[in-house]
Simulated assay, not measured.
Amino acid sequence: MVLIEYSELETLIGRIHEISGFDFSGYARPSLLRRASRYLTQHTMNVKDLLLHIEPGGGIVYDLIQELTVNYSEMFRDPDFFMKVKTDVFSYLESYPALRFWVAGCASGEEAFSMAILLKEAGYLERSIIYATDLNNKVLTAAREGVFTLGNTRTFSENYLLAAGKNSLSDYYHVAYNMAVISPEIRKKIVFSLHDLTGDGVFNEFQFISCRNVMIYFTLELRQNVFRLLYDSLSMLGFLCLGKRETLRYSGIEQNFKIIDSTLNIYQKIQ
């Protein structure tokens, strides 16, 4: 593993921002350090070599950005979260003629597909639209295809059953060339698009926002900025969902929310 000094990482962050406009300055350093070291090891170079190859208009800086962003997810990850949404959140949304959901930091789409399936089984999918966004264009391309390895479907199916799914997860995908392909009925209700939580602004008003396991990679100052964006994007009485290791504490907006579940970090905007 190629080891990077913190001073070298700061130089790299500055160079990425100078070339691409993408700002990693608010990201937690230990996570960036690990990912940058892995990138350099995979490409058999050191920081000095990398800095020499990063240039305006070149593809390397964008490849590096893709590698430095976090892209892990799985369908129905944290099944108890999906059960709670189904039992304690959906009842609030029943009276809306149209529903807008935002899955922020969607990676390759697993949570967005899970939410669509949940909405389908609750009878809300036809009047819903799910916006799934990420800053990593490579994973968004994969998400739009809705294709997963059959090996992954075992874990996905186990999660689905633990989330009290009504059917079999296989009802929502078909198998082609040893891959699982999410059904068109589910995919057509999801809009995948590029969005940077740390730099882009409000683009719609939502009744439900899921931004799970994203904030843990940001510094406190950046988290506060992102929380403000999420707050401004929520309709009154809309819901904000965070990961189990995340909280609204010290966000600057916690007084504007009612806690629905303090363990699963589900909140409702009340002012």
Rank of each mutant, 00 (worst) to 15 (best):
M1K: 06
L3C: 07
L3Y: 10
I4L: 10
E5A: 12
Y6T: 06
L9N: 02
E10V: 09
E10G: 00
L12P: 00
L12R: 00
L12H: 03
I13A: 04
I13P: 08
I13S: 04
G14F: 02
G14N: 10
G14A: 04
R15Q: 11
I16S: 01
H17N: 13
H17A: 11
I19P: 02
S20M: 09
F22W: 05
F22S: 01
F24Y: 04
F24V: 12
G26D: 09
A28Q: 14
R29Y: 14
R29T: 15
P30N: 15
S31N: 15
L32Q: 11
L32S: 12
L32I: 15
L32A: 12
L33E: 15
L33D: 10
R34Q: 15
R35E: 13
R35H: 15
A36F: 14
A36G: 13
A36L: 14
S37C: 12
S37Q: 15
R38W: 13
R38M: 13
R38T: 15
T41V: 08
T41N: 13
Q42K: 15
Q42D: 13
H43N: 14
H43K: 13
H43G: 07
T44G: 07
T44E: 14
M45F: 05
M45G: 03
M45C: 09
V47D: 03
V47M: 07
K48Y: 06
K48V: 07
D49V: 02
D49T: 00
L50F: 02
L50V: 01
L51C: 01
L51Q: 04
L51N: 00
L51K: 04
L52P: 00
H53R: 08
H53L: 09
H53M: 08
I54R: 00
G57I: 04
G58R: 06
G59P: 00
G59F: 01
V61A: 08
D63Y: 00
D63L: 02
D63E: 12
I65F: 00
Q66F: 06
E67F: 03
E67C: 05
L68G: 01
L68W: 01
T69M: 02
V70R: 03
N71D: 03
Y72I: 11
Y72C: 03
Y72N: 10
Y72D: 09
S73E: 05
S73A: 09
E74V: 08
M75P: 07
M75R: 05
F76H: 05
R77E: 08
P79I: 06
F82K: 06
F82V: 10
F82S: 08
F82Q: 04
M83W: 09
M83Y: 12
K84R: 14
K84Q: 11
K84F: 07
V85M: 08
K86C: 09
K86H: 12
D88M: 11
V89M: 05
S91A: 11
S91C: 10
S91G: 11
Y92S: 14
Y92Q: 04
L93N: 01
L93A: 05
E94Q: 15
Y96T: 10
Y96E: 15
P97C: 11
L99F: 10
R100K: 15
F101Y: 13
A104K: 09
A104N: 03
G105Y: 06
C106A: 15
C106F: 10
A107V: 03
A107K: 02
S108E: 06
S108F: 04
S108Y: 04
G109R: 07
E110Y: 02
S114N: 04
